[in-house]
């Protein structure tokens, strides 16, 4: 059975500064079987004409059990910052994968923006 997943970030934030702690909760509407688990990752990825690059900065696995929610916390790195260029874009997101083994191909994603720390100018051109 596939659980409906909702990812929320603490305070409903959509923007973070480099180096911040990203905190949030993953909630699911119905508990799966005892073997059902999910993977949570925080990552950046590139988008554009070039082949994609990704960078996972946080990864954890958790059971989709009766608790129906899983709090998480990740330390964001200093770079890369969110970028919208001409040939390439850099995005950040929290991704939860469900399913098992090679069928772990259902993804629930929550994008967020990573800005330069306060006091530094924005990076977008």
């Amino acid at each position: 059975m596939e659980a409906g997943i909702t990812i929320t970030l603490e305070g409903g934030r959509g923007e973070y500064a480099a180096g911040d702690a990203l905190k949030g909760t993953v909630a699911w509407d119905s508990p799966g079987s005892s073997e059902d688990s999910a993977e949570l990752s925080v990552l950046w990825y590139t988008e554009g004409k070039g082949d994609q690059n990704t960078g996972v900065v946080h990864f954890e696995e958790f059971a989709l059990d009766d608790r129906r929610k899983h709090p998480f916390s990740a330390e964001l790195p200093l770079l890369p910052l969110t970028y919208h260029g001409h040939l390439l874009k850099i995005h950040w997101l929290v991704r939860v994968r469900t399913g098992s083994g090679r069928n772990r191909n259902v993804r629930f994603q929550l994008p967020f923006v990573m800005r330069a720390p306060a006091g530094t100018a924005s990076e977008s051109t």
């Binding site: 082949d51 994609q52 970028y83 100018a121 990076e123």
Partner: peptide, 15 residues
């Protein structure tokens, strides 16, 4: 420029 993008290096994408 203050709004300049930082240097970036990945195998297929670079600034």
């Amino acid at each position: 420029p203050a709004d300049a993008m930082h240097s970036f290096h990945a195998s297929n994408n670079e600034i």
